[in-house]
């Protein structure tokens, strides 16, 4: 690991100020916030991330890790740990997709460490990104090319790709948040703002090294989840190469508002198949106002993967993704609202 200096933040404002005057963007910025450390320290050990200074925000845990559940919805602090939220009785009962997406991710130890905000911002597992001996990675070194296109790309994305990057977004929880129409609370040098979770991540386009819409110094302080009709009839289905402690090859977060078997409203977000947590709006539109039959679910899945572009080893992903979404929808329809 390269040398860095270490500071502790004792209030939010000083943490923000410490990181706000940076020219380099986001993950290449010399000053990084340290929360759980499970992604950042790993990437520093393998020399993918090279910050000069870490600002430890864990001392802010008391104010930034609250879990508040009431009639209006749920508010989850950005520093709340994955395990705490996953096993929270209110989350398990009323927002099952959130609890499931967390329990099916990582290991018990990592879930005890990792923060919600860090989880949502976690970086791709693309082997070319993680191995600095490969020269070509536009995410790591802008303009250097993409070794995954034409390379070993079985786990790579088929949705939201660009000629510059096909790296898969590896997380699960962001999809669950999107399926419940959640909002991100952000505090930064210019104050506080709120955006929908599905506007947090950026498509790679021709700047795959810029992964989200956060500005320098901004911190995710909380996630707000409204208590809507679909929250209880929600689930996360994760398909992977082994049964536990593995990233998704394909996954679906779905939340259904059903009335007499007819879809009143629905939210769908896909994992393992896209460059960002992927909201499948086209699939939602197919379902709205229709009875949730297997045929309709199949049509929705076709719509979701219509824009898919495969790259050889991942040619199987659209079919696996469609089947995953169909099963998730049909299973969700069987849940009690």
């Amino acid at each position: 690991m390269r040398p860095f200096s270490y500071d502790r933040a004792h209030d939010l404002a000083s943490a923000i100020r410490a990181a706000s005057a940076q020219v380099e963007v986001q993950n290449r910025a010399p000053i990084q916030f340290l929360a759980g450390g499970t992604n950042l320290l790993d990437l520093m050990k393998i020399d993918v991330m090279r910050p000069e200074r870490l600002v430890d925000i864990n001392p802010l845990e008391d104010s930034l890790s609250e879990i508040v559940a009431d009639g209006d919805g749920l508010r989850l602090g950005g520093l709340a740990r994955m395990s705490t939220v996953a096993h929270h009785p209110d989350v398990e009962k009323n927002y099952p997709v959130l609890s499931q997406s967390l329990k099916l991710a990582a290991s018990a130890q990592l879930r005890n460490m990792a923060s919600l905000a860090g989880n949502v911002l976690q970086r791709t597992r693309c082997s070319y990104f993680r191995d600095v001996s490969w020269g070509a990675c536009n995410k790591r070194e802008p303009g250097s090319g993409c070794a995954a296109i034409g390379g070993v790309n079985r786990k790579h994305a088929v949705l939201g790709t660009s000629p510059h990057c096909i790296a898969t977004y590896p997380g699960d929880f962001a999809q669950a948040l999107i399926a419940l129409d959640a909002t991100v609370e952000i505090t930064g040098p210019k104050g506080e703002r709120r955006i929908p979770v599905h506007e947090l991540h950026r498509l790679p386009g021709d700047t795959p090294h810029i992964e989200n819409t956060l500005a320098a110094g901004e911190i995710i302080t909380a996630f707000q989840i409204p208590r809507k009709a679909w929250a209880k009839r929600s689930l996360y289905l994760k398909v992977r190469d082994r049964e536990s402690y593995e990233f998704a090859v394909a996954s679906a977060a779905v939340a259904l508002d059903l009335a007499d078997g007819v879809v009143r409203d629905v939210r769908i977000a896909l994992g393992g198949v896209a460059t960002i947590p992927w909201r499948a709006v086209a699939a939602e539109e197919v379902l709205k106002g229709k009875p949730l039959t297997e045929d309709i679910a199949r049509s929705a899945a076709e719509a979701a993967f219509e824009p898919a572009r495969t790259h050889g080893e991942n040619d199987f992903k659209p079919e696996l993704g469609r089947n995953t979404l169909v099963r998730a929808l049909l299973d969700a329809a069987k849940l009690e609202a």
Binding site: D7, A9, H10, A13, I195
Partner: peptide, 23 residues
Amino acid sequence: MDTFSPLKAAPLSRRAGTRDTIE
């Protein structure tokens, strides 16, 4: 987007005087 007033900043604490060693 909701905007609120900026926060006041307090200095960060550093446990040691040098860059390379912390207590």
